[in-house]
Design a protein around this nucleic acid. Structure first.
Length: 164
DNA sequence: GCCAACGTTGGC
DNA sequence: GCCAACGTTGGC
């Protein structure tokens, strides 16, 4: 286990959210009204628990593109609304529909994010692997499927140093 | 497009 | 409550 990073004075936490750009990429967010959108469709309990219990307004988030080259971090977002029920689970027409999510006791949670910075060029997996600090990031671990991941302060700062 | 790794489901 | 079978994720 890694040592826990000290909690910054302002209490901000850092995260990495993963998405397939064919479904929802950084361009989608850039074009949204106020460059703000709900991060919906999370259907994994561990990720849901982070959204419900830990992700807070003012936290900073890396936007990571999976599945499609180039793989990597494309920009940063700020959390502008804390966890609330993911209503796509109640909509039978939604691809995220879940009949077992009861509106009176919602199973799935989403947060709203606002684009902060779209990088001129993404920080690729290869770059992350080459930097000692970022090489330990969860997203690089084999078999890591979690779509909402905590990022340490040191990792955040190390990634931002790579941004041109 | 392949397939290893993973999370979930369901029979027992 | 175990664990095999299944469906999905996501790097390669």
């Amino acid at each position: 286990m890694k040592k826990k990073a000290a909690i910054p004075a302002n209490n901000r936490r850092y995260w990495l959210f993963k998405s397939e750009p064919s479904a929802f990429g950084i361009e989608t967010l850039a074009k949204a009204a106020q460059q703000t959108a709900p991060w919906d469709g999370v259907r994994n309990y561990q990720a849901r628990n982070f959204l419900r219990d830990d992700v807070s307004v003012g936290d900073y988030v890396f936007f990571y593109h999976s599945r499609e080259e180039p793989l990597g971090i494309f920009g940063t977002m700020e959390v502008v609304r804390a966890g609330y029920p993911d209503h796509t689970a109640f909509d039978p027409k939604s691809k995220y529909y879940d009949a077992k999510s009861d509106p009176d006791n919602p199973r799935w949670i989403m947060v709203d994010v606002k684009l902060m910075q779209k990088f001129d060029s993404p920080i690729t997996r290869e770059q992350l692997q080459q930097e000692p600090t970022t090489a330990g990031m969860l997203v690089l671990k084999r078999g890591m499927r979690l779509s909402i991941q905590p990022v340490t302060t040191a990792e955040w700062q190390a990634v931002m140093k790579l941004v041109k």
